[in-house]
Simulated assay, not measured.
Amino acid sequence: MRVPFVKMHGLGNDFIVLDARVQDVPPMTAALAAALADRHTGIGCDQLVLLEPSTSADFRMRIFNADGGEVEACGNATRAVGVLHGAAARIETLGGELQVSPADGGIAVDMGVPRFEWDQIPLAYPMDTHTMPVAWEELDQPTAVNVGNPHVIFFVPDTDALELDRLGPEIEHDPLFPQRVNVNAATVVSRTHIRLRVWERGVGLTRACGTGACATAIGAMRRGLVERSVTVSLPGGDLRIDWTDEGRIRMTGPAVESFRGTFDPATYGTDG
């Protein structure tokens, strides 16, 4: 049995999309997801996305990072799936229901309401998440936001000068974060513009992270550093993030299909 896949990306954050609604897909395990994600011996991706039927939404989306771990949400992947679907839809995820719709500039995603309580991030013990009294070398006093998955955000003078490839994994695996954490380093350029780099949990440095852009924008808005509508510039391109009057996060940006293909599950340690 050969399994069809679609390769997509959102601002360079790339995905393998498998649609179990219309084709047979082998049971997804951490080992299989990691094998497919391997850029040398697999198809290669930051995340593998599995689409399944849903009883509560139009369909269900499951997301596996490159290390094989299943995660709650991925903003760029949601936009990619929105492009593939081609119409407005409600999507069930581990992080809650998301809504996508076509928009100028690509796909708009209603990411829901941000969460700020320490046990909603989650943290290992109670702490003010607005300005956290913690530091890792020059990175100190971050803010934390859960936007379907956990993020910690540091505001720095120049995000490009930071050794995020060294500090990112240390922070990701710190015991303060029992479910690990996505690490964002942001520079506020103006009241309507943020530059951002992200160390993504289970992936590493990434060209773009949609939930990271959302969490960073909300963190900056919460501190009064920017307006409630901002452009977030990542290495792969720009996203527009709005915090609506209803308290919901709206992310707008592009996603494109790269190519299609098939793979043999037996090559990756399963016979399907």
Rank of each mutant, 00 (worst) to 15 (best):
Glu97Cys: 05
Thr252Ala: 11
Cys209Gly: 07
Asn76Met: 01
Arg260Leu: 04
Gly224Arg: 07
Val22Asp: 11
Pro122Phe: 09
Trp243Asp: 11
Val226Gln: 03
Ala161Tyr: 02
Glu72Tyr: 02
Thr143Asn: 06
Ile249Lys: 05
Ile107Met: 15
Met8Arg: 01
Cys74Thr: 02
Pro102His: 14
Pro169Trp: 09
Gly82Tyr: 13
Ser229Ile: 02
Leu196Gly: 08
His9Ala: 01
Asn65Ile: 00
Ala217Ser: 14
Pro150Leu: 11
Gly12His: 01
Glu52Pro: 00
Pro169Ala: 04
Gly212Phe: 04
Arg2Ser: 14
Arg222Cys: 03
Arg195Leu: 11
Thr216Pro: 05
Gly112Ser: 05
Asp110Ala: 15
Ala35Pro: 02
Pro4Arg: 15
Phe263Gly: 01
Leu196Lys: 10
Val230Leu: 06
Pro4Ala: 13
Phe5Glu: 00
Asn182Asp: 10
Asp58Ala: 10
Phe15Asp: 00
Pro169Thr: 05
Val25Leu: 05
Pro114Cys: 12
Val183Cys: 10
Asn76Gln: 05
Val100Phe: 10
Thr206Gln: 09
Trp118Asn: 03
Pro102Gly: 13
Thr29Asp: 02
Thr55Gln: 13
Val109Gln: 10
Ala208Ser: 15
Thr267Asp: 15
Ala103Met: 08
Cys209Arg: 08
Leu176Gln: 11
Asp67Phe: 04
Thr206Val: 12
Met1Asn: 08
Glu70Leu: 06
Ile91Gln: 06
Arg248Thr: 15
Glu52Ala: 08
Val256Thr: 13
Phe263Pro: 02
Gly112Gln: 03
Val113Ala: 14
Leu94Asp: 13
Met132Phe: 10
Asp140Pro: 00
Met132Lys: 09
Gln23Thr: 08
Arg2Trp: 05
